[in-house]
C-alpha cells in the first residue's frame, strides 16, 4: 500500500496527487481513507489551490514518520523514563542531524506572508494535521509576543470595538486579572 495515490480536489476544482502514506499525516484524510469511502478524488472545499500544494508539501515531509515530528511538537518527556536509555553516540549524532535538517526545512517552509499563514492554519485545522497546526500557530503566537494591544490590532488588522471609556477601564483593571488566574 506504500505508493497508492490519493487525489485531492481543491475548492477551486484543481486536482492534486499525494501518496497515501503522506496523506495519513492528516487525521481527516486518514479517516476518509480508513473509512473506505475513497471514491477516486477527495474534495476539499475548504482548501484553495494556493494552499493545497503547501499542505501536501508538509505531508510529504512528515507522512510516515510521525515519530520524530511528534517528539518535537510535544517537547514532551515521559516522566516514568528517568533512566537514561542505552546511549549510542552514532545514533545520537544521526538524530541530531535529522532534527537539524528538519528545523532548517521548517524554517524555509514557513517563509511566507501572513495571508498564507492564516489560510494554512485554517487548512491544518480542517485537515487535522497537528504538526502543521502547531507550527503555524506558534508562528502566529510569536507575532503577538511582546506586542501591545495596539500593535496586535495593527498587525492583525483588527478594529478595536471598545469605546475609549471601556478601553481606559480595561487598562486600569489589568493588574487585577492576575489574581483570577490561580493555577489549580
Amino acid at each position: 500500500m506504500s505508493s497508492t495515490k490519493i487525489f485531492l480536489k481543491s475548492s477551486d476544482d484543481k486536482t492534486f496527487e499525494i501518496d497515501e502514506t503522506a496523506a495519513r499525516a492528516s487525521e481527516t484524510l486518514k479517516n476518509i481513507i480508513d473509512g473506505g469511502c475513497l471514491d477516486g478524488v477527495i474534495p476539499l472545499p475548504n482548501v484553495s489551490s494556493n494552499i493545497l500544494p503547501k499542505v501536501i508539501e508538509y505531508c510529504k515531509k512528515h507522512g510516515g514518520d510521525n515519530g520524530s515530528s511528534k517528539k518535537i511538537a510535544n517537547g514532551g518527556v515521559d516522566k516514568d523514563k528517568e533512566i537514561l536509555p542505552d546511549y549510542d553516540e552514532e545514533e545520537d549524532k544521526r538524530e541530531k542531524v535529522r532534527v537539524d535538517e528538519l528545523k532548517k526545512w521548517e524554517e524555509e517552509y514557513m517563509d511566507f506572508d501572513q495571508q498564507v499563514l492564516y489560510d494554512l492554519m485554517l487548512a491544518a485545522n480542517y485537515l487535522h494535521i497537528k504538526g502543521l497546526l502547531d507550527l503555524t500557530v506558534e508562528k502566529a503566537a510569536s507575532m503577538i509576543r511582546g506586542r501591545t494591544p495596539d500593535q496586535i490590532r495593527e498587525n492583525f488588522n483588527i478594529n478595536s470595538d471598545f469605546t475609549p471609556e471601556e478601553e481606559e477601564e480595561m487598562i486600569l483593571i489589568e493588574d487585577e486579572w492576575d489574581d483570577e488566574w490561580a493555577f489549580d
Binding site: 500557530v137 506558534e138 503566537a141 503577538i144 509576543r145 511582546g146 506586542r147 501591545t148 494591544p149 496586535i152 490590532r153 483588527i158 478594529n159 478595536s160 470595538d161 471598545f162 478601553e167 480595561m170 487598562i171 489589568e174 486579572w177 492576575d178 488566574w181
Partner: peptide
C-alpha cells in the same frame, strides 16, 4: 502559547 501576562493584556485587543 503565550505567557500569562501578554495573554491577559490581549483582552484589550477586541
Amino acid at each position: 502559547r503565550l505567557p500569562l501576562k501578554p495573554v491577559l493584556r490581549c483582552k484589550c485587543v477586541s
